[in-house]
Nucleic acid binder design. Structure first.
Lengths: 210, 210
DNA sequence: GATATTCGGAAGAATCTCTTCCGCTTATGC
DNA sequence: GCATAAGCGGAAGAGATTCTTCCGAATATC
């Protein structure tokens, strides 16, 4: 696939990128079963163009996941390297909400996408790296004393996946609602929280798509 | 509708109840667009029976919502009356997760269900009472000093709706995951939380289906 | 035991989505 | 500029899914 991209005509290349971007949005808004025609519409492209580039939905899901996981991983690594504390890095990661929403949808929420991606070694590798990075950040934040010690990276991933879902409000207040829910969740993750959590911490290995 | 129920034959009455229960489960698992046949299957009833009792999907959604909202309202009032503090009442309400999940799905999450219910005055009345009860509990908990003062009942409802969604894990660990997420969310709502929330509290009037 | 009511599920109708195909358009290299 | 290979759009047929009706068999009720 990589080799053929260089031979793509400029307009084709442009359309390919538009399709991947539009598919990501459509997947995170409506799930990965969104009609192909809706994706084409969002990309301002004909369905024919979509099918020429991606022979079927699975290929498209794989391409979107690969691109998106990669970017989120890069974001997370940059955050870990540049922010003064691991807690700040975590906050920054979950603030990149648009990209992360696609990741969460494909890697955690949708059964179908998980099924497809579990058979794609390339995506699996990036996903593992991403989980490792998250684990590192969580453990550092706990070592700093900023995060409560009784949660695992799996707990954090699940909370992200919950908070990042489309909230049940009008579009214009979605941003405010998200910001508030995110802040409340982060406060719940802080050290010094009142309660003790039931059960053992959830590790990343317990998440689906291992 | 109420009058005809008394004239229903015993087996018909039984099936009607099974259908409502099964539809609630199906709606909260798969959303309100779940195939009618799937609902019939869960109720162990033929599709014919389903259509005889509920002429179309909308009638079924209305019936499920009415029954479910009513029960949740009763639960909430009982909790407010019986628990020693408003905070305890809130914890108890969100612990009745199975029922509440249906409520949240129909009243907040699903566009289609909201649309249908917004045209049904009977359901709307129960919903308003439910929101009033939630507002009372939240304000009491804040007066007690147990809950942070910078959240509104709308924030709480939205957080419930997020936590109550199907978490992305295998069925057997879903209960543990839910319990932990719920506890973390509640800790984020406690008084003395570290951060100050951005924006104004979200009131129930800002939720959809006003 | 008679009978009015209800049940179950097969099957035709209706709808939605996928996918292909081809005449037209556009980028590229000379 | 121009030739040409590559790409484009979207109509339309195929296929799948879901809805809804209908009627012979089963069952509650009197």
């Amino acid at each position: 696939m990589t080799e053929s991209q260089t031979r793509l005509r400029a307009d084709a290349r442009r359309n390919r990128d538009r399709i991947i971007a539009a598919a990501g949005e459509a997947f995170s808004d409506q799930g990965p079963d969104v009609p192909m025609e809706e994706i084409a519409r969002r990309a301002e492209v004909g369905v024919g163009t979509l099918y020429r580039r991606f022979p079927d939905r699975e290929a498209l899901i794989r391409a979107v996941a690969q691109e998106n996981f990669r970017r989120v991983l890069d974001d997370a690594r940059a955050a870990a390297a540049e922010e003064p504390t691991a807690w700040d890095a975590l906050v920054r990661v979950v603030d990149r909400s648009h990209r992360l929403r696609v990741t969460v949808q494909l890697a955690l929420v949708s059964d179908r996408a998980r099924q497809i991606l579990s058979e794609d070694p390339r995506t699996g590798g990036i996903r593992s790296e991403l989980m490792d990075e998250l684990t590192r950040i969580v453990e550092s934040a706990q070592a700093e004393g900023a995060m409560r010690p009784d949660v695992g990276a799996g707990d954090v991933a699940i909370l992200f996946s919950l908070v990042l879902r489309q909230p049940p409000v009008a579009r214009e207040s979605a941003a405010r609602v998200f910001d508030r829910a995110r802040a409340i969740m982060l406060d719940g993750l802080r050290a010094g929280a009142a309660g003790v959590l039931p059960g053992d911490p959830i590790r990343t290995g317990e998440l689906p798509l291992r």
